[in-house]
């Protein structure tokens, strides 16, 4: 029987069967979210701690809602506001939290590998909610779920990931997952934002967006960090959006039934033109809805038995 391990640290550790298990489980969780009473007693008596070292209202809320819909007790700790975390090492914080005997810790941290460090130390399950530019596995799973909802399968699809690949944990987890599930992946962006060895991951690098989306089934636009401009990774927002932003004109190169996705929050008019944002191609809100279902599925699979 297919099962998950103690933790969910990254897509890297998952087999295609485990990925399918999560996606299938999320289907029934989504059904719970559609009910009038959006709550089941599955995780009653279990404690989930959201430990966020980086601000992220949207991901934290999604985990919080997921836990609550499964009747878990959910506690939020964010590094900025909490004395549990201030000045403490991650190790010490982990030990302190362990003393509260949580069943699951959801960790968002700026350092790659921080969830691995915590997972090695603590008996509780750990879910990686984003570690540096390394992995963001729940985002990749919810993206896969959303694509599968529309296209039935990931197998054989051509998916373009465009933007700042170098600094994107979303890109890394998605590349890994999509390749494992039989999709073809192209990455696109200025060379300054695409790692030199990206093709060794099994993707194709196509620098110009028009060419990259030729015949694409799915286009994932990544959020651009405005502060990267200072590091000269790109010359100006204006030039970035002109060459690497998606608009109706460029979209002609993609398939007619192309899906446009974005992990959010979107810089309106930078990565995606306003007209496309409000078009039926764009399924960003589905991603948000499905995020809760995926996180419920993971909580259930990790600590529900």
């Amino acid at each position: 029987m297919v099962m998950l391990g103690k933790d969910l640290l990254g897509i890297h550790d998952l087999t295609p069967d485990q990925i399918s298990l999560v996606l299938d489980t999320a289907l029934s969780m989504k059904e719970v979210s559609a009910r009038e009473i959006k709550k089941v007693p599955t995780l009653r008596g279990k404690t989930v701690i959201n430990l966020f070292y980086e601000p992220s209202t949207r991901t934290r809320t999604s985990f919080e809602l997921a836990g609550k819909r499964l009747s878990a007790d959910v506690i939020n700790i964010s590094a900025g506001s909490s004395s549990v975390v201030k000045g403490e090492t991650l190790e010490d914080t982990g030990r302190n939290l362990q003393a509260m005997n949580p069943d699951l810790i959801v960790l968002r941290h700026a350092s790659a590998g921080a969830p691995q460090l915590l997972a090695k130390m603590l008996p509780s399950s750990i879910i990686n909610a984003g570690d540096g530019a390394h992995e963001h596995p729940t985002q990749a799973l919810l993206d896969a779920f959303t694509i599968r909802e529309r296209k039935q399968t990931l197998q054989g699809l051509t998916v373009v990931i465009a933007g700042d690949i170098t600094h994107s944990r979303v890109a890394r987890s998605n590349i890994d997952l999509l390749l494992k599930m039989g999709a073809t992946v192209r990455v696109c962006g200025p060379r300054t934002m695409v790692p030199l060895y990206i093709e060794k991951m099994g993707v194709t690098f196509v620098p110009r967006l028009e060419e990259a989306i030729e015949g694409a089934d799915v286009i994932m636009m990544l959020r651009i960090q405005m502060e990267r401009q200072r590091g000269s990774l790109f010359p100006s927002i204006r030039e970035y959006s002109r060459f690497f932003g998606l608009n109706r004109e460029k979209l002609k190169h993609a398939r007619d039934d192309v899906l446009i996705m974005h992990p959010g929050p979107v810089n309106r008019g930078v990565e995606i033109s306003p007209e496309l944002l409000d078009s039926p191609y764009t399924i960003i809100l589905d991603q948000v809805t499905n995020g809760v279902a995926i996180r419920m599925a993971l909580m259930y699979l990790l600590i529900g038995k």
Binding site: A112, G132, H134, R172, P195, L196, Y197, I198, M201
Partner: peptide
């Protein structure tokens, strides 16, 4: 090192 592992790990090379 900036290389293939750093590409996977997302760490600055």
């Amino acid at each position: 090192n900036e290389g293939i592992p750093s590409t996977y790990l997302g760490m600055r090379g």
